[in-house]
């Protein structure tokens, strides 16, 4: 899956996160995470993001995440939504989303 258009999901509010995706210029996958709790949970957040992207088979795009202390399943859902919007995906493969 490739990010072909700019898209956003989530919010900036506490316990949520904002995910912004945009097309890559050089066909790479770049991920930037900032978080209020990066010291304690940075590795875990990154793990969830990487895993979500991998399951969706995202090969290229720029993913920017502003995390406000969201729980894992919120991170997963927001990343999925932003990616599906950014990839202009019409048909869902539910197995990838589980």
């Amino acid at each position: 899956m490739r990010i072909i258009t700019e898209a956003v999901a989530g919010s900036l509010e506490s316990s949520d996160l904002l995910v912004k995706v945009s097309p890559s210029r050089d066909k790479t996958l770049e991920i930037y995470v900032t978080s209020d709790v990066i010291e304690q949970f940075g590795t875990q957040i990154r793990h969830v993001v990487d895993d979500t992207l991998k399951r969706l088979a995202v090969t290229d795009g720029l993913i920017v995440i502003e995390d406000k202390g969201a729980l894992d399943y919120a991170i997963r859902a927001r990343v999925q939504t932003a990616v599906l919007r950014g990839a202009a995906c019409k048909e869902l493969n539910w197995e990838q989303l589980s």
Binding site: V8, S11, L12, E13, S14, L18, K68
Partner: peptide, 12 residues
């Protein structure tokens, strides 16, 4: 308060 982040989100 949380208003500021809501405002930021709405603006976005």
């Amino acid at each position: 308060t949380s208003l500021s982040l809501q405002l930021g989100g709405e603006l976005l």
